[in-house]
Design a binder for these strands. Structure first.
Lengths: 106, 106
DNA sequence: AGGTATACCTCGTGATACGATGTATACAAT
DNA sequence: ATTGTATACATCGTATCACGAGGTATACCT
């Protein structure tokens, strides 16, 4: 996908990936893969950013002798998703502007 | 609108604004205003970028004693819009992933 | 011993949106 | 005459950000 288009979805995508169940970095990447590829360096940058913005909290837990960092969404994170839904309406109106003159396939 | 979301639309938006009729900077900003605000510095950056990418051509013409730079879309620019329509399908699938669990209003 | 999967992290770079700022003309209001 | 507003273009510096390259470490299989 076009990287610029992707940008607008990344943060919210990660929030959506931990919304119903706490998750951790490696798994988030796998879960998102069918929808959107993202590298580890990108993900950890995003997770840090979302933590700074208090949209998620972190908890470290041991699993098979290795450490995992589990991320849980906060109320603020949930609100972020709701805001995205509002923004999307505006995106749709812009989308219609861009594609409006295509009489061939309506 | 969220700036990150906006990013993905800006270039294509400008192309769409000159698609049916040649236009110039100041007018493009006005035409896009109902859909998306963009500053002059942003627009001129975009126009330069699109020209470098050969998605539009420029022609200078005098109007009321002042110079105007008219921009015309190229085939490559038109193709860019078509590509956007394809990318949008993927965007929609990601959108559905993000908002899928909202049983309240489907 | 080597390979693969899991799991985390950092650094540097390039792309980019935008505010601030500058130049210049036309025209209306004071 | 001067001030203000609209038109019309342009540049520069800054902050944000995605990502490749590279690093560390464990578990398990061959």
């Amino acid at each position: 996908m076009d990287i610029q288009l992707k940008r607008g979805l990344l943060d919210v995508c990660v929030l959506a990936a931990i919304k119903d169940e706490d998750s951790y970095g490696y798994r988030i990447i796998k879960d998102l893969k069918p929808y959107m590829e993202l590298s580890e360096s990108t993900l950890y940058t995003i997770l840090k950013r979302l933590e700074s913005a208090r949209m998620l909290t972190v908890r470290t837990a041991e699993h098979d002798g290795r450490l995992r960092k589990y991320y849980r969404i906060t109320d603020r994170g949930l609100r972020r998703i709701e805001e995205f839904r509002e923004d999307w309406k505006q995106m749709m109106s812009v989308y219609r502007f861009i594609t409006k003159e295509e009489r061939a396939d309506g």
